[in-house]
Amino acid sequence: MRRITPFALAALLCAFTTVSHAAPAYAPPPTAADKSWKLPPVPMPQDNVSTPSRIELGQALFFDPRMSGNGAMSCASCHNPSLGWSDGLKTAVGWGGQVLGRATPTVVNTAFNTQFMWDGRKKSLEDQALGPMKTPQEMNTDFAAALARLRGVPGYVAMFDKAYPGEGIREETIAKAIAAFERTVVVNDSAFDRWLAGDRKAMTMEQWRGYKVFVDEAKGNCVACHSAPNFTDNGFHNIGVAKGDGDADPGRYAIRKVASMKGAFKTPSLRDIEMTAPYFRDGSATTLHDVVEHYVTGGVDHTNLSGSMKPLTLSAREKDELVAFMKALTGERKPLNVPHLPQ
């Protein structure tokens, strides 16, 4: 057996101490103020309280391409669960392959929203569910034909009868069912959520410091728009995204004729943000670091810029910490089986 000299033993102890000091540290426990970020139970309208049969029906409709005008597109074509319930594209691709002007928003945590679509033209999940179907540039659904088709499918007739007894197969029940399914697409088990629940090891110190940058009004001040508990104020802001040639998208102004709404778009939730690149309503930011740099510079197009948009002074380390925190908002990947569609 080889004898360890005192010098070698000292070297080993030094190396062990170095490794120990480099071991990851974990976040301090959350304060009472931090717990304002804890998500409440999923809200539901009284006339559409979720049940297993309603969720099952909504999931089938969500994945069924027969709901589109050409029988080739479903809600899941743009809201793909494997791509963060978005599509991974800069802007959406709609009917006939046409490239649309806005990015596809994620379905994640839309259950907590009070405004829907980039311009807020829909006021409920039920109303939103039919929006893409009724838009010629998106799914281009002929609802008279779609309803006739569904009523001719015995499996769907039975599912509607079970989910909405006596209400029949109508636009309203289609909207209700899809909304019931979308209310199940919830992220509330991220590292940040687990930390809020008391698991100090859920977030690293880097992520916690990024959280502090996020909420600090003198630093990131991200909470000015991405507020608790769902990381959105459900408001509309012009954040100075660069305009492309011929881009005249008025944003919220098309719905509400107030000067401050020109070029303003809805604040998206940041939950599962790591999964939904590229970012912004035009997909112009490729990575989360690009997003941070956009806010550090105070935006690109300063025309009608929101009062909340001001250049930030962040060190390289603080930028990295901010990105690390946003990645701590990613939920656990849950298996989802694509349903067998009714026949």
Rank of each mutant, 00 (worst) to 15 (best):
T297P: 00
T297Q: 12
T297G: 02
T297F: 05
T297L: 04
G298T: 01
G298V: 01
G298K: 01
G298Q: 03
G298R: 05
G298L: 02
G298H: 06
G299Q: 05
G299S: 02
G299R: 04
V300P: 00
V300F: 05
V300Q: 07
V300D: 11
V300E: 11
V300I: 10
D301Y: 05
D301S: 06
D301W: 08
D301M: 08
D301N: 13
D301T: 06
H302R: 15
H302I: 06
H302K: 15
T303P: 00
T303D: 15
T303G: 03
T303N: 12
T303S: 13
T303Q: 12
T303L: 09
T303F: 11
N304C: 08
N304D: 15
L305F: 12
L305V: 08
L305N: 11
S306E: 11
S306T: 14
S306M: 07
S306R: 13
G307N: 13
G307A: 14
S308K: 15
S308Q: 15
S308V: 15
S308Y: 15
S308C: 11
S308F: 14
S308A: 15
S308H: 14
S308G: 13
M309F: 07
M309E: 12
M309H: 04
M309S: 01
K310D: 01
K310Q: 10
K310L: 10
P311K: 03
P311V: 04
P311T: 05
P311W: 06
P311H: 06
P311D: 07
L312G: 02
L312K: 09
L312V: 04
L312R: 11
L312D: 01
L312N: 03
L312F: 02
T313V: 14
T313P: 00
T313M: 13
T313L: 13
T313D: 14
T313A: 14
L314N: 10
L314D: 12
L314T: 10
S315D: 13
S315N: 12
S315V: 08
S315K: 10
S315A: 09
A316G: 12
A316S: 14
A316Q: 14
A316W: 04
A316C: 02
R317N: 10
R317W: 09
R317H: 09
R317D: 14
E318F: 07
E318A: 04
E318V: 03
E318K: 08
K319R: 14
K319Q: 13
K319F: 06
K319N: 06
K319L: 02
K319T: 09
D320K: 14
D320Q: 14
D320M: 11
D320T: 13
D320H: 07
D320I: 03
E321K: 05
E321P: 02
L322D: 11
L322I: 03
L322F: 09
L322H: 07
L322A: 12
L322P: 02
L322R: 03
L322Q: 09
V323F: 05
V323R: 08
V323D: 08
V323M: 03
A324R: 10
A324C: 09
F325E: 09
F325N: 07
F325Q: 07
F325I: 02
M326E: 14
M326H: 04
M326V: 00
M326L: 11
K327L: 03
K327A: 00
K327V: 00
K327R: 15
K327G: 01
A328P: 00
L329Y: 04
L329H: 01
L329V: 00
L329Q: 00
T330Y: 03
T330D: 07
